[in-house]
Amino acid sequence: SQVHIGNTTFTFDNPEKAQKYAEKYAKKKGLTVQKNGDVWTVE
């Protein structure tokens, strides 16, 4: 599972961890999370 934030990609061994990280980061920065398969993009 991966989380894309700008030009940075974070890889997680667990989809739940990836989703939590993406949502927490997005909330903190006032951004949105797009999910595509097991990839979350914060923008």
Rank of each mutant, 00 (worst) to 15 (best):
A26L: 04
N7C: 12
N14S: 15
T41I: 14
K28G: 07
V39I: 13
I5A: 03
V33I: 09
Y21N: 00
N7E: 09
Q2K: 13
Q19E: 09
D38R: 05
N36G: 02
K29R: 11
Y21L: 08
L31V: 07
T8H: 15
V42K: 00
Q2W: 11
Q34F: 12
Q2I: 15
A18Y: 01
N36K: 10
K27D: 07
F12V: 00
T9F: 15
V33Y: 06
T9N: 06
V3K: 01
I5D: 02
N7D: 11
V42P: 00
K28Y: 10
V3F: 03
N36A: 09
K35G: 05
K28V: 08
N7H: 12
E16M: 11
G30D: 05
K20F: 10
T32M: 08
Q19I: 06
V42R: 00
P15T: 05
T11D: 08
Q34R: 13
E16A: 12
V39G: 11
E23R: 05
Q2L: 12
K17L: 13
W40K: 00
N14D: 14
D38W: 08
T8R: 15
G37L: 05
G30M: 00
K35P: 01
T11I: 15
T41Y: 14
K20C: 00
V3E: 02
T11W: 15
I5N: 02
A26C: 03
K29D: 05
K24Q: 14
Y25K: 05
T11S: 10
V33A: 10
T8Q: 14
A22C: 06
E43I: 15
G6K: 09
H4M: 13
V39T: 13
K29S: 06
P15Q: 08
D38V: 07
Y25G: 00
A26V: 00
A18D: 00
Y21F: 15
P15C: 10
N36M: 11
S1R: 07
V42I: 12
Y21D: 04
A18T: 00
K17E: 15
F12K: 02
D38F: 11
V3S: 04
F10A: 03
Q19R: 13
T32V: 11
Q2F: 14
V33C: 00
A26Q: 02
N7W: 11
N14P: 00
Q34A: 09
K35M: 06
E16S: 09
Q2D: 06
N36V: 14
F12A: 02
K17W: 08
P15M: 05
E43K: 13
A22G: 01
Y25R: 02
K24T: 14
W40M: 01
T11M: 14
K29H: 15
I5M: 04
H4A: 10
G37A: 06
N7Q: 08
F10N: 02
D13R: 06
T32G: 04
S1D: 03
F12S: 04
K35A: 05
F12G: 03
Q34N: 13
H4F: 09
V33L: 09
K27L: 07
A26P: 00
K17T: 13
D38K: 06
T11N: 11
K24H: 12
K29N: 14
V42A: 01
Q2H: 12
E43L: 14
F10W: 09
G6E: 08
Q2T: 11
L31W: 12
Y25P: 01
K27V: 04
V3Q: 01
K28R: 07
A22N: 00
G6P: 04
N14L: 07
K28T: 07
L31A: 05
N14V: 08
E43F: 13
Q34C: 13
P15E: 09
Y21M: 09
F12Y: 02
A26T: 01
D13A: 12
K17Y: 10
L31C: 12
N14M: 08
K20L: 13
K17C: 13
A26G: 04
A18H: 00
T41A: 04
H4N: 10
K27T: 06
Q34G: 04
A18Q: 00
N36F: 12
T11A: 09
V33T: 03
A22Y: 04
W40R: 01
F10S: 04
A22E: 00
G30K: 04
V39K: 08
T8C: 15
D38P: 06
E43P: 06
Y25I: 13
S1C: 14
D13V: 09
F10I: 14
G37F: 05
W40S: 02
T41P: 00
L31K: 02
F10M: 10
E43Q: 12
P15V: 06
K24E: 15
H4Y: 08
T8L: 15
D38N: 14
G6R: 07
W40I: 04
V3Y: 00
E23T: 04
T9C: 15
Q19Y: 11
T9R: 09
K17I: 11
V3C: 03
N7F: 12
L31M: 10
K35F: 12
Y21S: 00
A18F: 00
K29V: 07
K20Q: 13
D13N: 09
V42C: 04
K29Q: 07
N14H: 07
V39L: 08
K20A: 13
T11E: 10
K28E: 14
K28L: 11
Y25T: 03
K29Y: 15
A26H: 01
W40L: 05
S1H: 14
G30W: 01
Q2V: 14
K28M: 10
D38Q: 06
D13E: 11
E43T: 14
S1W: 15
Q34Y: 13
T41D: 06
F10V: 09
V3L: 05
A18N: 05
Q2M: 14
K35I: 06
V42D: 02
A18E: 00
Y21Q: 03
A18I: 00
Y21T: 04
V33E: 01
G30H: 05
P15I: 05
K35L: 14
S1T: 11
V33Q: 01
T41C: 14
L31Y: 12
N36W: 10
S1N: 10
V42N: 01
K20I: 12
W40N: 02
D13W: 10
V39D: 11
T8G: 05
